[in-house]
Each structure stands twice: as structure tokens, then as C-alpha cells.
Write a protein that binds this DNA or RNA. Structure first.
Lengths: 180, 180
DNA sequence: AATTTATGTCAGCCATATTGACATAAATTT
DNA sequence: AAATTTATGTCAATATGGCTGACATAAATT
């Protein structure tokens, strides 16, 4: 383990010539970092973090999802979720409703307050995307969507598809909401 | 704060119709999550985390950068960097060299071992990108690059540009390794 | 000689995640 | 009806990766 045998400094930089697409790797890193910076700033004012953002987001995108479903989407443990969810409930952003079919389940819904915050967090992100598309090439939004989707693990793409794209004909009281 | 006045559950899902590009927001989230999953798995074997990855990555991309420069790129505090950097040094992935001009500075270089690990971490990410480009539309790689760059805060785009894309004509002692 | 700069280190704090164990209520199976 | 499984909640301990503040050292600059 001495400097002579193996600890010699490598002075040449890794570049795209090394068969690896470092340009896109780094752009993805920087892009995501700044993508999350706008909501982060807002969340700080509320004493919330990214964990709260994710919960609030999916509760707003799929109102009525159960705790188990939320855990599945977020891929965290229930103990991790507990604290964050409790805070969102205590602050009146999310409420729990006892499941109608199965009374053990807790359906999670945003309140108006929670809906407002979710929108406030999403707007700057959407604006950033819109601006980037304009700067890049407005026509090919679909292409970027395909690219990003292809970056997702095939097994997990179902998750993406489960989220509503367009407002559905409201299902009314009787019928179920069939997103499946 | 009672259920009657403000705590009523909002039952309608937020959709793309609400003027916000939820589709791309979520795709970006899922794409980044899976993008980091491959290296995460490798890092775990070494007892390292994402923090180590980032340090190792930039030390390999800009060998010889100083501690201050690294802190600037990563945007963390020196106390945060300290533990991670120490581990990378102790395990022989990175070595410090006293700055030639300014002997207070510590230039950071990867060792061969550190170079190898950096490559091992980058390869699956690059492969994922390549596959996604193939699935999307191979021609328009440049477009996606423009899009991602436009997602980065303008002030910070200089950071992106500071990284080497192609191997440069080596400046130093005798002949360097030119893979070009 | 005094000050500033680059780095390191100590100590403590916070947020977010983890695992394991156990509790409760409701649904399901036997 | 009793036993089991399921959905959720909670307690405790632990790890990681950030943070701030304070202080130390050596080297460069003024």
C-alpha cells in the first residue's frame, strides 16, 4: 500500500473518448440537481424536505391511494414514511380516510392546502422544463419523453403509466376510478 | 382547523391539464432514480455511498483539482467532504499531492484503483443512456444534450463546460497517454 | 510582522433513510 | 368461533450525508 507500488497519481482526465458518455452523465446530474433546487427552496420555508415533497406529490397525483401503494411507489420503508406523513397530516396538507371496502386501509387525500402546496412546488419545475424545451427544440418534446421513459427500468415503467395524464371523466359516487 | 372548514379531502387527481407538465416532472424523477441505482449497487459492495461516487467521479474527470475546487463543484461544506474524502484516501482510491505552486493546496488525483472504480461506476450509466438513446431516436443525441444543459441554471453552466470532453494534447512531462 | 488563505479537525445537530420487534384492528381462512 | 394473515402504526437503535461553529496549522501575501 505504499506510494511506490500502487498509489501513483493518475494525471490524465477521463474523457468521452474512454467509451463512456461522461457528457450526458454529468448533464443528467447537474440538470437533476437544479431541477430539485426550486422546490427545495420553497420546502425549506415550511420546514419540509424532499421526502415531504414526494409524498405530497403522489398523494395529489393519485388521491385516495393507500399507505401500502404509496410505499410501493416511493420504495421506502413504512418507518421512513411515518414521520413525514405524520407531519403532513398534522399540518393539514394531507388527510387520511378509512378505506370504504377494507376498513384497515387508510386512503390518503390532499386537502386544499395540500393541493395548493403541491402546485406551488410543481410550477417552477414545469416552468424550467418548458424553458428548456424552448431552448432545445420545442417540437421534439415527445422525443425527450421517450428518452426519459427509456431510462427507467422496464419493470418499473408500469408505475409511470399508472399516473393520470389527462383529467378523466369524473367517476361520480357510484363508479370506481379506473386508472388501471 | 377542523374537518368541516378546511380539511376536506380533494378527490380529483392533478393532471397535465392543470397547466403543469407532470408527465415530464415524473419521468425525470423516475429516470434519475434508476440512473443512480446501478452505481449505488456497486458502491454498497465497497461500503461507499453516493457522496463517494461524486468525489471519485470529479477527481477522475479533473485530476489535480484542489480541495477548494472540489467543494465548489459539489457545493458541500469541507466538513461534509472530509469524511468521504478521507475514506477514499484511506482505501487507496484517491491520493493527495502537495500543490506545486502553492504548497498549502492539496491536489487530488485518482490512483489506478480509483480510476478503475470510477470506470466501473460510469459504465452501467453510460450503457443505460446508450440504450435509451437507441430506444428513443439515435440521431437526436445532440438535442437531448441541449435539453439537459438548458435545465441547468445558467450561472452554473460554466461548471459543465469546465469538464473535459475530448482528451487534450497533454501539456506535461514528456508524453502522456493519448487515447484520442 | 501581521493578515489572509487553504486545509484539516473536533463537536454537535438535523433529515432521511435503514432494520427489527411488537401492537392493533380488521379481513380472511380453517 | 378460532386462528391466521394483512394493513397500518409505533418504538428503538443505527447509518449516511448533510449542516454550523470553533479552532489549529502552515503557507502565502501584504
Amino acid at each position: 500500500m505504499n506510494q511506490t507500488t500502487m498509489g501513483k497519481p493518475v494525471k490524465e482526465a477521463l474523457t468521452n473518448d474512454d467509451g463512456v458518455d461522461f457528457a450526458l452523465i454529468e448533464l443528467f446530474f447537474f440538470a437533476y440537481r437544479d431541477f430539485t433546487s426550486d422546490p427545495d427552496a420553497i420546502l425549506t420555508e415550511y420546514g419540509f424536505g424532499r421526502a415531504h415533497h414526494r409524498v405530497l406529490h403522489f398523494v395529489n397525483r393519485r388521491p385516495g391511494l393507500t399507505v401500502a401503494e404509496l410505499l410501493d411507489v416511493l420504495r421506502i420503508t413504512k418507518q421512513s414514511l411515518a414521520r413525514v406523513l405524520k407531519q403532513l397530516i398534522d399540518t393539514g396538507h394531507v388527510i387520511q380516510v378509512q378505506g370504504p371496502r377494507d376498513r384497515r386501509q387508510r386512503e390518503l387525500y390532499p386537502t386544499n392546502k395540500g393541493r395548493a402546496l403541491a402546485m406551488a412546488l410543481a410550477v417552477p419545475q414545469s416552468r424550467r422544463i418548458r424553458a428548456a424545451l424552448r431552448e432545445a427544440q420545442p417540437a421534439d418534446r415527445a422525443m425527450i419523453e421517450r428518452f426519459l421513459k427509456a431510462m427507467v427500468n422496464p419493470e418499473l415503467r408500469t408505475q409511470v403509466d399508472k399516473l393520470p395524464s389527462r383529467a378523466e371523466a369524473p367517476a361520480g359516487e357510484g363508479k370506481e376510478n379506473d386508472r388501471g
